[in-house]
Design a protein around this nucleic acid. Structure first.
Lengths: 343, 343
DNA sequence: AAGAGGCGAAACAACGTTGTCAAGGGTAGC
DNA sequence: GCTACCCTTGACAACGTTGTTTCGCCTCTT
């Protein structure tokens, strides 16, 4: 027998089942059985193998394992806009919990609102043979995913619908929520309502704007495009927009912020000025109840959104072959913020 | 030639390079070359192969690829406590950005403060042959990672040090920051300062408590254990603790919240009562400047924490073999919140 | 015109694991 | 005592890809 000097020197290569087998004096297949807790292995051999595994620091190569077995990779992909945004962080949080409950790892990718990047990332996820995809879409055409979906990779779209692809979808009642929010302002007597939105190109924003228009139409108030500001990406931009609108002749007496970051910026500016303009915002946020002024928010259960989507995905992974569903979650109008100090 | 009926029927199996090769009438290896943009392939064959790839919807199997080539998997693992917490979300956000800049995917796993789960998840990540690990540790013993680290899997610990393992570490100046925060309260004349912390078992909490004690000692103020509340996990618990302490005889005139969630709960309770007790909090948060009362926070650059750690990790992945480093980032005392309304 | 050299393409092996099958040995049933 | 069956173990092939080697052919050189 050739003396092998590599036992301690060859630290650069990871030990494989072959190494473990040699060390334990058993066959490769027996190692495989022990590592996978397969039955019908003598206790003594099990012990020898486990000892060798521990001594060598062997760790099964998950890549080789799932390549050979053709079984699932126990990985799902989550595509969102941006992790640091609390809305997506909440979705990612539940997705992680549910993935964990299903012994599955979670790959998170950020599209940063770019359809190109979205396509590239989804392709990359597929190439890693994820068992399923959770997607908050940035683009409007997802037909490029059709081959994958037909090949059996389940996908669930979250918060916004897919374009050109019939898949499970979980949405919020954006239109109804916005309608209720604006109606509240109208009920309070406001007739000039400033509307602040991120980007009209985004599905949720269009829906919310439609809902706002619904409420205006129902109340017989003319829709004034001069009161709508598009392209507001962050709180600072929202604050500037509010400032500009208030400085105009015949300024708005109320504002409707179409997402949480916009609302935050609007609160800031109104507070800075001591303005008593009313404010309703879409999306709840953790510290909304501590806002220094009364604030009505169109709240939705973000965790439920993520949970339902993830559960649906794992049902599909588990073999559910029923027709794709679209689920719409309700929103709720909630009064938040601190009571206004007496004048 | 045998007529193959499988072309459209066999939708259940994914096309492989062999299928593409057959379709394009070239060898397997030529397909591999085309897919990998290798040189020395006739343009005509390239076109035929690409056409076959498109027709079949072929996507390279990344598992097989990195198994065979032995190259990196272009994946890193990030272990944190909980994604939904803004602190970790910020870290995950930068980690994702930097991973993306390095054409790498990011697997995020949540330990939920459980050392057992932490060990299990890290092992699982290693078994997937990630190229590197970013770890916000939950446990205190990480010697189980030694075999992996010695085998060349780089690991960078973030926010808390590793136990029993010499690896790169990026920390905040917890002790110095807490010392500065408490000193501010002492300078303002406070002598009874309530201290609220999550868990003394957590490194950062111990450090911050030590820093608070430093400041007290320097000012010659006796450390009163009765003013310290441990085990405060969420804002509601913080609010309850503040309420209890204020209802005691000889209540604190100031509070020090040792993390953002605790501070949030304390703000809430102080505001509810209209108490004028002072408050300093460790950790900044997005809406801190909108808090309804003056609030001094020990702010640190969370994104920098994540960025430096991720950059260090990719330097290691890129081949940096220098000795492990420990980097401590400074904190800053910042006045936030709204000016107190005139009495 | 013949040899050298290089390029294009294919055949083959291998990555680390698991599914399949076969074989040896022991035991139970008749 | 012999067959049949099960338990245990191992040899071998295969998953889908890429590194290596080989081979043929074309071009360039002298």
């Amino acid at each position: 027998m050739v003396l092998r000097v590599t036992s301690d020197v060859n630290r650069t290569k990871r030990p494989t089942m072959v190494d473990v087998a040699r060390r334990a004096g058993v066959s490769l297949k027996t190692v495989s059985r022990v590592v996978n807790n397969a039955p019908h292995v003598q206790q003594e051999l099990v012990d020898r193998v486990l000892a060798a595994v521990a001594e060598l620091g062997f760790r099964r190569n998950h890549l080789a394992s799932s390549l050979r077995s053709g079984r699932a990779t126990a990985t799902i992909g989550l595509l969102i806009e941006e992790i640091a945004n609390p809305f997506y962080a909440a979705i990612a949080g539940v997705a992680a919990e549910i993935a964990r409950a299903n012994d599955t790892m979670l790959i998170i990718a950020s599209s940063e609102e770019s359809p190109d990047r979205e396509r590239q990332l989804l392709r990359e996820l597929c190439s890693r043979r994820v068992d399923g995809l959770l997607v908050v879409p940035a683009g409007h055409d997802h037909s490029f995913l059709r081959p994958e979906v037909e090949l059996g990779v389940p996908a669930v779209f979250v918060d916004r619908p897919a374009g050109g692809l019939l898949v499970d979808t979980v949405l919020l009642d954006n239109r109804g929520g916005a309608r209720a929010g604006v109606r509240r302002l109208l009920d309070e007597g406001h007739r000039r309502i400033g509307i602040l939105l991120d980007s009209i190109g985004v599905y949720t924003m269009r829906e919310r704007l439609d809902g706002a228009q619904d409420a205006l139409a129902e109340a017989g108030v003319a829709y004034d495009e001069g009161l709508v500001r598009d392209g507001i990406r962050d709180p600072a931009a929202a604050a500037r927009a509010v400032a500009e609108m208030l400085d105009q002749p015949d300024p708005p007496t109320a504002f409707f912020g179409l997402n949480n970051r916009i609302t935050l910026g609007a609160v800031e500016e109104l507070q800075r000025r001591g303005s008593d303009a009313a404010l309703v915002g879409f999306d709840d946020f953790e510290s909304a109840h501590l806002m220094p002024r009364p604030l009505t928010v169109v709240a939705s259960d973000t965790r439920a959104l993520g949970r339902i989507a993830a559960e649906l995905l794992f049902a599909r992974i588990g073999g559910d072959r029923s027709l794709p569903r679209t689920i719409v979650l309700p929103t709720e109008l909630v009064r938040r913020g601190l009571p206004r100090p007496r004048a």
